[in-house]
Write a protein that binds this DNA or RNA. Structure first.
Length: 589
RNA sequence: GGGCGUGUAGCACAGCUGGAUAAUGCGUCGGCCUCCUAAGCCGAAGAUCGCGGGUUCGAAUCCUGCCACGCCCGCCA
């Protein structure tokens, strides 16, 4: 709780320096208490024992005895060598009601902090429908975009379009060379495509891609060689910046990309800018970059003319050669990525990338190369893959859960719950609530766990609507909205905070959580850990439920001004916080 | 073989810049709707924090060895 810390630190400083303990020695030790029953802030006094030649308990007793009576504090206690500070709830209430807790908005750039962030996420190959395996990147990335905005940073969400190379080449070749009958025959043993997505281009075109992949693997040797030659020449042309070929690639993948973006949009995910990989080949920056790399001290040339950097000299372990140019003179994906990052540094002063754990080595190579070029490396958030209980997902093999299907199912299940719980709602209202609840549950299920944790997708967990899920937070918010609507029509007493003794536990806990709200957001954004904020929102909603239990706002058709003011503030924090998580804060459910 | 990551109640997961009784949800057991939406609230049971060693006043957290799982080690993307 930063606001409390700022209030007590000067007093601690003067007492401890008098005793002979410098600020460096204690500042980092003062931290939030583990348990609310202990207080709000705790200073363990054990480290001072050897310096002061006194028992920890004696030291904490002494500090507690010397500590002045502050309005902000309810108590300073000394227990087992720990010095515990408990905030005065009246002071917390005052902080909450005097705009010291910032609400903010996750939906637009406010420029409040003056910081700009270019956040690249998703950047999935446009070769097929968006599936759950790819979702962690997009959901994590979009949530970070939103949290940065909520924090007050100017954010640009960027999608790097992989519009060249083999994946797109295969798709383009297949669309040019295979008929619908060819495709149906090649895929006859696969599950047929869902009727539901017959008009969605990503679901249609991925079949050409899959059929081509089967041919490349199972056709007779002569046909296989012919196909590889044709695809190879397309890829080769694209990598040398052949504009006609790149345009044919674009024609092949654009409808697929549009289908993917439509899916993402349903999850509330959108991008400010799209940058095509080929851009840096066509405009010559990649060629120039390769010349620059040739001139570096750690650069070397292989027998066939390929260029590489020996990153072992810069501390890379394992395989130390980083190839940036093929023997035929063309660039590699990673080379273009370096060029892309050089460009990005011209666009923003903070770069954040969201990448799968399989890109760790690659990202390290790109980072070291950027440093070698006198540039900074970007911040990278790595995440582990989402697997199915039966194994890894793969677009090529077709064992995936499509996000479109998951969202339909989520909507259907949410809809069933709403109909059962609220039989009086009409169809439109049910649909609107079901859409918000269903997509929120899917997002939250992924956001709430830390990214490096391996994740197995399970339907029943993605579609949980109880405590610990998004609908739990949404529900607390609707309660606050419901109170707000009722209270506005009734006479309201002046805002008169009760004395600390008269404040019930549920109220005090809510005040604490609200005072911590900005701290958690700040840390969440600084460390790129969306799950910290997600879990805090769960706690905030839980605390609101406790407040709801203990503090009736409307009593006998009169509104308690103080309780109402707290409720309204909590409502605002829940609303903006939900938006920060990409959840639609509906008012009724 | 080398590098990186993960291992915490039946299940899932937080805590990992060392601090008190290891937090939360699901599941299990028990209680609460004449009162602001019960998608809620209250209570109970349930944990050798993968295993061994070390550092420390103090280790889930730091160091080290081992075990299990995941990802990577292409002139692919």
């Amino acid at each position: 709780m930063k606001i409390l810390q700022a209030t007590i630190s000067p007093h601690l400083e003067s007492i401890l320096s008098e005793m002979g303990v410098g600020k460096d020695a204690w500042e980092s030790l003062l931290q939030p208490s583990r348990e609310a029953s202990q207080g709000d802030l705790t200073l363990p006094c054990f480290p001072f024992a050897s310096v002061l030649r006194k028992a920890p308990q004696a030291i904490s007793d002494e500090i507690a005895g010397l500590f002045p009576q502050l309005e902000a504090l309810a108590s300073v206690s000394s227990v087992n060598g720990y010095l515990n500070f408990t905030a005065n709830p009246e002071w917390l209430a005052d902080a909450v009601l005097s705009d010291q807790v910032h609400i903010g908005s996750a939906l637009e750039n406010s420029g409040r902090t003056g910081e700009t962030v270019l956040l690249e996420h998703t950047s999935a190959n446009p070769n097929g429908p968006f599936h759950v395996g790819r979702a962690r990147n997009a959901i994590l990335g979009d949530t970070l975009v939103r949290l940065h905005r909520l924090h007050g940073d100017d954010v640009r969400a960027e999608y790097y379009v992989d519009d060249m190379g083999k994946q797109v080449g295969v798709l383009a070749w297949a669309l040019d060379n295979l008929s619908e009958e060819d495709v149906n025959e090649l895929l006859s043993e696969r599950e047929p495509p869902s009727e539901r997505w017959l008009t969605k281009a990503d679901h249609q075109r991925v079949r050409w891609y899959q059929a081509a992949q089967i041919l490349r693997k199972d056709a007779d040797e002569e046909r296989k060689a012919q196909i590889e030659k044709e695809i190879g020449s397309l890829v080769h042309a694209s990598e040398h910046g052949d504009v006609a070929v790149l345009e044919s690639f674009e024609a092949a993948y654009t409808p697929v990309l549009e289908g993917m973006l439509a899916t993402l949009s349903r999850l509330g995910i959108s991008y400010d800018t799209f940058t095509k990989e080929s851009r840096f080949v066509v405009d010559g920056t990649v060629a120039k970059l390769m010349e620059t790399l040739d001139g570096l001290q750690i650069s070397d040339t292989a027998d066939n003319g390929a260029g590489f950097l020996d990153l072992g000299q810069r501390g890379l372990k394992g395989k130390t050669e980083f190839f940036y140019r093929r023997g035929d003179g063309s660039s590699l994906y990673a080379t273009r990525d370096v060029a892309y990052h050089m460009w990005k540094w011209g666009e923003s002063n903070r770069l954040v990338n969201v990448l799968g754990e399989d890109h760790k080595l690659q990202a390290k190579q790109v980072g070291l190369t950027l440093e070698e070029l006198g540039q900074k490396r970007p911040e990278v958030l790595f995440y582990s893959f989402i697997k199915l209980p039966e194994g890894k997902m793969s677009t090529r093999q077709g064992n995936v859960v499509f996000m479109d299907d998951l969202l339909e199912e989520a909507h259907a299940q949410a809809s069933a719950v709403v109909r059962e719980l609220r039989p009086e709602y009409d169809d439109d209202k049910v649909a609107q609530i079901a859409e918000a609840v269903g997509t929120a549950a899917v997002r939250f299920n992924i956001i709430k766990v830390s990214p490096e944790k391996g994740f197995t997708f399970r339907w029943e967990e993605a579609l949980a609507f109880e405590a610990g899920s998004a609908p739990f937070i949404m529900y607390a918010h609707t309660r606050a909205c419901s109170i707000s609507k009722r209270a506005h029509a009734l006479p309201t007493s002046p805002i008169q905070p009760p004395s600390a003794d008269a404040m019930p536990e549920g109220l005090v806990e809510l005040l604490r959580l609200m005072c911590k709200h900005n701290d958690v957001l700040e840390r969440s954004v600084r460390e790129q850990k969306a799950h910290l904020f997600a879990l805090h929102m769960l706690e905030l909603a839980n605390a609101y439920n406790g407040f709801y239990r203990d503090c009736p706002v409307v009593k006998e058709n009169e509104v308690d001004g103080f309780a109402f003011a707290i409720s309204q503030m909590a409502r605002e924090l829940m609303r903006s916080g939900l938006e920060g998580l990409g959840i639609t804060p509906i008012e009724e459910m």
